[in-house]
Write a protein that binds this DNA or RNA. Structure first.
Length: 576
RNA sequence: UGGGCCGUCGACUAAUGGUAGGUCAAGUGCCUUUGGAGCACUUUGUCUAGGUUCGAAUCCUAGCGGCCCAGCCA
């Protein structure tokens, strides 16, 4: 596929991005454009196996593939790598399409399956067999392992390695015809049993699997291995830059070998580091285990790092994409701090989420000098970051709820909120001073009594210029609507969930407090009709979104992420 | 111990032989009707040892450290 280098400059430099942050894959593409490789074309693909739900690691790959193609005027295909019918299901295909779409990427009419190419792949297998480049082996899986050798010792040739092309062809046809049992024979590439790269020690191309395939049904009882399917699928689709993760580095010589033997379009495989996130597991196999063992409520449990999970949690596509673009791409294996991800949700939600007042752990406040039965409608700004968002009315009355955390009978140092004798501002309400408390039999404060200053209506500072150190939120007791709020913490207690004692697995690091269900939370009445999926900032608490479990009259919210909280930091420090 | 890959602030990532920069985190101050947001400032880094060079994070050599590979998974 050599192309004349006459027209070089033309298409090459035209697409060079102005101030885009660099990465080594973009550099490769830039270099390719300089030499007019593939006539300057860029074609990528996102190739998931439909054996689980997509997670943040896939989001990184999706962004990489779609962004890179878009940047250089190319396209990205969605291709399901469905060569192993025993693990793959239509449910996964649908969830994957849904996740990619939700992230905001469009494969247009380029939805492909490796199984689309089964006929072609088989024809190529026949071709290699005829050419003496592949042979049918009768070794069992155990025997094959023995013959393969070890990391340090070379392998030995299979006793069936030197069958004639004619015999191999007949055997291959009989394999395909279903004459042999699962596992009894394989088709192997004839390369080099002594190669230091184990992938080149006569890798299996086809195995016998009498299994129903989600798309081809029972048409096939032999299925190509990843190595015999992926590169050729790329080639068929004329993928110029086939981006995959680091563990496939050792497979590249094999990827190239098949392409060279077959003399087909030379796609190039480029490997990058997979995403690792602290306190998070990004492995479909392990996430599946969490689902199957019932450790979480399903693939879309808001604690899961799946796209559907964090979506339900309240993350936006923009937040996820900004994150993926910010972390960059390299070949270094490292681990991104979860705080980085959280930063990008807060940043996005800060701009767009309407503010609202909600009390998660209610404490009753009675304003003794406020007229009984009086209700005032207070004007509240919907989003100080967005003037377009307008304002709303919030009812204020003699009895309110405030957050238990916002009152301390004995205030610690640097605690500025309500305590006996202290005055604070009720946001959009009034200045109130704590005049006393009512306790229950166990000595716990059950009611806080206050006096308000009518000159501070709307929360405005009084004419005497008196200042107050803090502003707290509240909800009018008679007007409050109740809701369930699900508060999440990290699913795992360890930065690296895989770090365990001998004999344990990652489930030993599961955080028993990853989900806290709060019932009887008090919300301002404007929230009454909020639809599933809507996102809000509960002032001073965090970002929350309405869960699909929510029903009119029994609202359910998820906490997406807490607000950054200076006080918690102070407390933690002094607590040490 | 065979082969492949990788080592830059606490984390991630730029600098492509010529000023080590950005984001997150942390800290300080300003501002504030969210202890939110915003603004300003600050701390901390080229794995080690040699070599090449006027000049090295970058090139060479040797160490050290980490990751991946012995599926008929992808």
């Amino acid at each position: 596929m050599k192309l004349p280098s006459l027209t070089t400059e033309a298409s090459g430099s035209a697409h060079v991005p102005a101030a885009a942050p660099s990465n080594f894959i973009r550099d490769i593409i830039l270099e390719d454009q300089k030499t007019n490789k593939h006539g300057g074309q860029v074609q990528t693909r996102f190739p998931p196996e439909p054996n689980g739900y997509l997670h943040l690691g896939h989001a990184k790959s999706i962004c990489l593939n779609f962004d890179l193609a878009a940047e250089f005027g190319g396209k990205t295909n969605l291709r399901f790598d469905d060569t192993n019918p025993s693990k793959e299901e239509t449910e996964y295909v649908e969830s994957i399409k849904d996740s990619v779409r939700w992230l905001g990427f469009d494969w247009e009419d380029r939805l492909f399956y490796a199984s689309d190419y089964f006929d072609q792949l088989y024809a190529w297998a026949v071709q290699l067999t005829k050419g003496g480049k592949a042979y049918v082996d009768d070794l069992s899986a155990d025997q094959m392992r023995e013959y393969r050798g070890t990391l340090t010792a070379p392998g030995r040739d299979s006793p069936h390695r030197n069958r004639t092309a004619e015999e191999n062809l007949q055997l291959l046809e009989r394999m395909r015809a279903g004459e042999f049992a699962d596992g009894s024979r394989t088709l192997r590439a004839k390369i080099d049993m002594a190669s230091p790269n184990l992938n080149l020690r006569d890798p299996v191309m086809y195995r016998i699997l009498h299994a129903e395939h989600h798309r081809t049904g029972s048409k096939w009882c032999i299925y190509p291995m990843y190595d015999f399917a992926h590169g050729q699928s790329d080639s068929i689709e004329r993928i110029t830059h086939s981006i995959c993760t680091l563990e496939f580095e050792d497979h590249r010589p094999l990827y190239n070998w098949f392409i060279e033997q077959l003399e087909i379009f030379p796609s190039r495989q480029i490997e990058f580091d997979r995403l690792n996130l602290t306190y998070t597991l990004l492995s479909k196999r392990k996430l599946l285990q969490l689902v199957e063992e019932g450790r979480v409520r399903g693939w879309d449990d808001p604690r899961m790092p799946t796209i559907s999970g964090i979506r339900r949690r309240g993350y936006t596509p923009e937040a996820i994409k900004n994150f993926c673009r910010a972390i960059g791409v390299s070949k270094t294996n490292g681990s991104i701090e979860l705080a980085m991800l959280e930063h990008f949700v807060r940043e996005d939600l800060n701009k767009r989420a309407p503010r609202v007042m909600a009390v998660l752990h209610p404490l009753k406040v009675i304003i003794d000098n406020y007229p009984e039965n009086q209700v005032e409608e207070m004007e509240a700004v919907n989003n100080p970051e967005d003037p377009e968002a307008g304002s709303r009315k919030v009812p204020f009355s003699r009895e309110l709820y405030i957050e238990q955390d916002d009152f301390r009978e004995v205030p610690p140092k640097q605690y500025y909120r309500l305590s006996p004798g202290r005055e604070v501002r009720l946001r959009y309400g009034y200045f109130v001073t704590c005049t006393g408390v009512t306790k229950n039999g166990r000595g716990e404060v059950v009611e806080v009594h206050c006096a308000y200053d009518p000159a501070t209506r709307g929360g405005n500072s009084p004419p005497d210029g008196r200042k107050v150190k803090s502003t707290i939120h509240w909800v009018s007791a008679p007007h409050a609507i109740e809701a369930e709020v699900r508060v999440y913490e990290n699913l795992f207690t360890k930065e690296d969930p895989d770090q365990v004692e001998a004999g344990q697995d990652f489930t030993a690091n599961l955080n028993p407090r990853s989900l806290e269900i709060l019932k009887g939370c008090k919300l301002e009445p404007s929230l009454e009709k909020s639809a599933p999926g809507s996102r809000f900032q509960f002032e001073r608490l965090g970002y929350f979104c309405v869960d699909p479990d929510s029903r009119p009259g029994s609202l359910v919210f998820n906490r997406t992420v807490a607000l950054k909280d200076t006080w918690t930091k102070i407390e933690k420090k002094s607590g040490k």
